[in-house]
């Protein structure tokens, strides 16, 4: 796909400082190309390090091939870059683990993440891979919010989780390969199940 035809992420030109007005080109694993501002890239520690290491000039950006991101598809990458452009210039939160911080989902992020679960999980995976701290925070919060007030049966439906019985059936099938530790694992599983089955929680 040519650069001219690439899906360009909306950019608020006025908000970008002049010295940062350089756009990098990235390509998803399904060959979709994106132009992303330097300032927006700073939200991703992984990409920021990458472009710093490459040391591209404005000419390089235009003349060299787009930087390939091989394990994220175009649909997911579009969401990622939309998020980065919207939040460019914002401070990146530091989680030192000492004091838990309240994560709030801004309206823009809530709308961006109003997507099916499959895409939401891909977005989380991408945020983790590209090390976009705040995107990971809000997307994990969204997944956590989906769990509130639900019974285990409802949670299985929401997250498409197998029941213990389905798990066991899959495990039995796998054990047909005659794993010597199979019985031991089975006993451990039964014990854990027993422990988990007689409490309130």
């Amino acid at each position: 796909m040519s650069v001219e035809n690439a899906p360009v992420v909306d950019v608020d030109e006025a908000a970008i400082p002049v010295e940062k007005k350089m756009y990098y080109r990235f390509e998803s694993n399904d060959k979709k190309e994106f132009r992303v501002s330097e300032l927006a890239i700073q939200q991703s520690e992984t990409l920021n390090r990458l472009v710093e290491a490459m040391g591209y000039t404005s000419e390089d950006v235009e003349n060299k091939p787009a930087i390939a991101i091989e394990n994220i598809d175009g649909k997911t990458l579009k969401l990622v870059f939309q998020w980065c452009e919207h939040h460019k210039g914002e401070a990146i939160p530091v989680d030192d683990g000492s004091v838990p911080k309240i994560v709030e989902i801004p309206e823009f992020d809530a709308k961006l993440m109003d997507i099916d679960n499959g895409l939401l999980f891909k977005l989380i995976w991408a945020a983790d891979y590209l090390n976009i701290v705040q995107l990971l925070n809000v997307s994990c919060k969204k997944v956590a919010n989906m769990a509130q007030g639900k019974t285990p049966a409802q949670l299985r439906r929401v997250y498409l989780l197998p029941s213990d019985e389905e798990d066991e059936a899959a495990k039995r099938a796998a054990q047909e390969a005659q794993d010597p530790r199979a019985r031991e694992v089975e006993e451990e599983f039964e014990e854990r199940k027993r422990q988990g089955g007689n409490s309130f929680f």
Binding site: P100, V103, L136, N137, C140, K141, V143, A144, N145, A147, Q148, K150, T151, P152, L155, R156, Y159, L161, P162, S163, D164, E166, D167, F189, R192, K193, G196, F201
Partner: peptide
């Protein structure tokens, strides 16, 4: 990270979903 945001009650319910 997801579990940290879930809170205790939801975590215990998730614990009962699958092994």
């Amino acid at each position: 990270k997801i579990l940290k945001e879930c809170g205790f009650v939801a975590i215990q319910r998730l614990r009962k979903t699958c092994h």
